[in-house]
Write a protein that binds this DNA or RNA. Structure first.
Length: 598
RNA sequence: GCGGGCGUAGCUCAAUGGUAGAGCGCCGGUCUUCCAAACCGGCUACGAGGGUUCGAUUCCCUUCGCCCGCUCCA
């Protein structure tokens, strides 16, 4: 149950986003379109800053990660290989009585007697319903309970005193057409396809169906071979991508949190299977405790890499102003994990709309998931495309030859078991699976394997929303006349703040001040995003920049012009969060700012 | 998708079956020596479509959007 107070906070944030130009509803002049949002001038800058910081820290400033920019529409086979075509189209049924929704494939088969009705009438009100309805009567229950359920159904259709018409009964076994909780009839299964679909080419035929990608990651797997061959990278290395993804969400909710068009920042970091690490280094390093494990080491197994990326990502969030206290973590339980995933840690942010649990704690909602996905993805694409996705590892081949035969046999067996498990789970017939797993295990001995992957996958728009919620601060101040007013300050970290500095002449009607201020503005623009404002009183201009989240204000006054000779060519720099001011020479201003916004 | 609530200016809200009003904001002006000053002038709205009516922002229907719950959570 969301607290009303928190809804109010969320409404204030949404309102400020519109008022100041962070986020607008898409297509607003036409009444909007559910699940789509636009970024206004400030939002566009904010988003650009976030994506650039991610790209820099995840790729440009690392030796072991390269970038990719793939298309949104790809060969539809990719989504069959990834499993999205199947898992994104679960047939759903609704209970005709309670409207509860079920996944058709998850309904327990039941047996019993079906009581069917052609309709019902209400003589008193002279009303009649011709809608058929059936109830499954579980063994051992009196027929009256089935009739009662049917009466409830017709009452929900507007009849008061229900007389059931045309009762028939039939014994059935293993049916999934009734609600297991109350026996009421379900609607026919209706497919729910959550991928947005289009046609490639002008003919709208089934052969031309293509999908707008529901995640950016698959392109990385599909282009793995090309990137590996052209980037001169060796495993372990990663491929980063930022881009739009699309999902036909059942219920877009919570402002931009769950949208139908959204942007992701994804890294697929490819690592050696543990068997290869062990063959090369004799043992596999595993985490010894919580916290960042330090610089990557060649003997790391998947668990070390997974922990490493979780901690790297937390550092990133801390670096843009989201402290650990504002974040939450969710380690997926074995039941929640996809069958191919070995571990997934979600990084959550405590949004104003996040639910409070039984202990009164706010857990938060997901910003990013860091998944250890084994070699599932590349294996799937290998099987579906028929193209080999393995890599050859010189170090592994050399090391393998030096291993004791028992060790070789042990590692070979482990790798065989892992491959067999994958192949069997994906439906490969047993004999064929065994043969292929044997082939894979033999390949390992020759230095070949399909890389495993650690996937930190973050939602840009969710992060923007987190930054907006985190920055939003209201203070009530009362002036000497007793008039109180609420002031809003967006306390963005200077690194992500859309505008870095406001430049103001103290007064507009003094040409010398205006000229000097414009000079300072020209000095800064191009290096940092600066905003010049000369209208209204200085306090008003500060307040406007506070709402935009501009961390610094520079004011040109008479001292800048030399009224006090010792202050000639210095300016007032005003800090957004506490209003503190300091005097800085114009010659040092740009360096001073750059040091704080980079 | 289901149920409930809501939709009036950029924002917050008001009024009315008979041509919509305030505060804030925004723009321009006078003024102004550091935190939304004052004054003057200006701008902007009944979500959309249909129906009832002489006349609808108001009543009815449909639709779109927003919020809450359920569901979904791939």
């Amino acid at each position: 149950m969301a607290e009303p107070k928190e809804n109010v906070l969320m409404e204030k944030i949404v309102s400020l986003c519109k008022r100041r130009g962070f986020v607008f509803q898409s297509s607003e002049i036409y009444g909007g379109i559910n699940g789509f949002w636009d970024y206004g001038p400030l939002g566009a800058e904010l988003k650009r800053n976030v994506k650039e910081l991610w790209w820099n820290s995840m790729s440009r400033f690392r030796d072991d990660v390269v970038g990719l920019e793939a298309t949104i529409i790809m060969a539809p086979q990719i989504w069959r290989a990834s499993g999205h075509v199947d898992t994104f189209s679960d047939p759903m049924c609704d209970c005709l009585l309670t409207k509860k929704r079920f996944r058709a494939d998850q309904i327990e088969p039941q047996s019993g007697v079906v009581y069917s009705y052609k309709g019902a009438k209400d003589s008193a009100a002279a009303k009649e319903s011709g809608d058929g309805f059936s109830v499954l009567l579980a063994p051992g229950k009196p027929p009256e309970s089935a009739r009662k359920t049917a009466v409830q159904f017709y009452q929900s259709r507007g009849l008061q005193t229900v007389e059931l018409i045309g009762e028939t009964t039939e014994k059935v076994e293993n049916t999934t057409r009734f609600n297991p909780e109350n026996g009421a009839q379900l609607t026919d299964p209706r497919p729910f396809n959550l991928m947005l679909q289009t046609y490639v080419g002008p003919i709208q035929s089934d052969e031309n169906i293509a999908y707008l990608r529901p995640e950016t990651a698959q392109a990385i797997f599909a282009q793995f071979k090309n990137v590996h061959e052209t980037s001169r990278q060796k495993v372990p290395f990663g491929i980063a991508q930022v881009g739009k993804a699309f999902r036909n969400e059942v219920t877009p909710r919570n402002f931009t949190f769950r949208s139908r068009e959204f942007e992701q920042m994804e890294l697929e970091f490819f690592i050696k299977p543990d068997e290869a690490v062990e063959a090369i280094h004799g043992s596999v390093a595993v985490p010894t405790g919580p916290g960042h494990p330090g610089e990557p080491q060649p003997n790391w197994g998947w668990q070390m890499w997974h922990q490493y990326w979780v901690e790297e990502r937390v550092r990133f969030y801390e670096g843009i102003g989201l402290s650990r206290a504002t974040l939450g973590f969710h380690i997926q339980t074995p039941e929640e994990l996809a069958h191919y995933a070995r571990a997934t840690t979600d990084i959550l942010f405590k949004f104003p709309f996040s639910k409070v649990d039984e202990q009164g704690e706010v857990k938060g909602d997901e910003l990013e998931g860091i998944a250890a996905r084994s070699d599932f993805d590349l294996s799937q694409h290998e099987r579906h495309s028929g193209k080999a996705m393995g890599v050859f590892d010189e170090d592994l081949r050399t090391a393998w030859g030096k291993l004791a035969p028992e060790k070789q046999a042990e590692l070979s067996q482990r790798y065989y078991n892992a491959r067999l498990k994958y192949l069997t789970k994906t439906g490969v017939p047993e004999e064929k699976a065994k043969a292929e797993a044997k082939e894979d295990a033999d390949g390992l001995a020759k230095g070949q394997y399909i890389p495993h992957v650690i996937e930190p996958s973050a939602g840009v728009d969710r992060l923007i929303l987190a930054l907006l919620a985190n920055a939003f601060t209201e203070t009530t101040s009362t002036d000497e006349k007793g008039k109180s007013e609420v002031r809003t300050v967006m306390k963005f970290h200077p690194r992500v703040a859309p505008v870095k500095v406001g430049v103001f002449p103290l007064l507009k009607n003094k040409p010398e001040l205006v000229a000097k201020a414009k000079e300072v503005f020209q000095l800064l623009r191009g290096h940092v995003l600066a905003f010049y404002d000369e209208t209204g009183a200085i306090g008003r201009r500060y307040a406007r920049q506070d709402e935009a989240g501009t961390p610094f204000g520079v004011t040109i006054d008479f001292d800048t012009l030399g009224e006090k000779p010792e202050l000639l060519n210095t300016v007032t720099v005003r800090h957004r969060d506490d209003g503190a001011q300091e005097r800085i020479p114009i010659s040092e201003l740009l360096g001073w700012l750059l040091a704080r916004v980079k």
